[in-house]
């Protein structure tokens, strides 16, 4: 049985794709974005034990050299997340696809489908393929929420297993893109266009700040993708950068955008022919 590290499962989410969905968040990401809103999902636990000492309700302990989380004692105060120097969380469960599926099955009457997110869920490709197969058996849809690192041209099996991808396009300027993700990255628009041409690009998201070249990115994205909307709806979510959840020192250095500026970006996307545009 393959297991994957699951950070959390939200049974009822209105903000992870179309309709009501159960959202499964995986632990671990291959990007290290400056503005990440949940940086505690980036790395796997190193079992250093620092959080065990600060937990006010003693819900954490070390057993056989590993940090163990007692969910029943946990008061969700997030002290462990603040303590962790490694961008990780001790509140992660290694689960089998069957275990995750059991949880989804209980929600099945009330949801349109599931969305897998992270972290970066595509790091757990065999797990996803197994889970999606089961989920589709219930008549539910399965969407992948991805940071853009996976090239689906080389991962046809995963693409076939899902119903669509919700893709981050952080920037269309390669240099800025690499700087934002803290690593190598290129060809994001080629990846997006490939998905769009197959009608499998459910959603594109760009986090915007006056400190990024967001105007150019929104213009490029909408201009490139508009023509593929006849293959399937593409929702463009233009997201205001918010300080909430962002780690230091970036929290202080990135500016939040004004509503007027966001409205201007929305207009740009619409002028370029995007039908479904939302500012959040």
């Amino acid at each position: 049985m393959i297991k994957a590290p699951i950070n959390k499962i939200i049974d009822q989410s209105f903000v992870d794709g179309p309709g009501n969905r159960t959202a499964v968040f995986f632990q671990g990401c291959n990007y290290h974005c400056a503005y990440c809103h949940n940086p505690e999902t980036i790395n796997l636990c190193m079992n250093c034990g620092l959080c065990v000492e600060t937990c006010p309700v003693h819900a954490l302990s070390i057993v056989d050299g590993k940090v163990v989380w007692n969910e029943d004692l946990c008061c969700k105060c997030d002290t462990c997340l603040k303590t962790c120097p490694h961008l990780s969380s001790p509140r992660v469960k290694w689960m089998t696809a069957d275990e995750v599926f059991e949880r989804i099955k209980r929600n099945a009457p009330f949801i349109k489908g599931i969305s897998t997110s992270g972290g970066e869920c595509t790091l757990y490709k065999p797990f996803l393929i197994e889970l999606f197969g089961k989920v589709k058996g219930l008549g539910l849809t399965a969407l992948i929420d991805s940071n853009g690192s996976m090239d689906f041209r080389d991962n046809q099996d995963l693409l076939d297993a899902c119903d669509g991808v919700m893709l981050d396009v952080k920037s269309t300027e390669t240099e800025e893109y690499c700087s934002l993700i803290g690593g190598d990255g290129s060809g994001i628009m080629d990846k997006a266009i490939y998905l769009a041409s197959l009608g499998k690009l459910t959603e594109v998201r760009t986090v915007c700040s006056p400190d990024f070249s967001s105007e150019k990115t929104v213009d490029d994205v909408s201009r490139s993708l508009a023509e593929y909307q006849n293959k399937g709806d593409i929702h463009y979510r233009i997201i205001s950068y918010r300080h909430y959840g962002v780690r230091e020192p970036y929290r202080q250095t990135i500016k939040e955008p004004s509503p007027d500026w966001m409205a201007h970006l929305e207009q740009t996307a619409r002028n370029n022919g995007m039908i479904h545009v939302t500012v959040v």
């Binding site: 009822q12 209105f14 903000v15 309709g19 009501n20 969905r21 009457p109 009330f110 349109k112 939302t278």
Partner: peptide, 20 residues
């Protein structure tokens, strides 16, 4: 209030409630 952005989500929940 945020539900206003995704009325289809409430419809999914209503459909489930009726099914049950």
């Amino acid at each position: 209030v945020t539900a206003k952005k995704n009325p289809g989500a409430i419809l999914d929940i209503f459909k489930g409630a009726f099914k049950l």
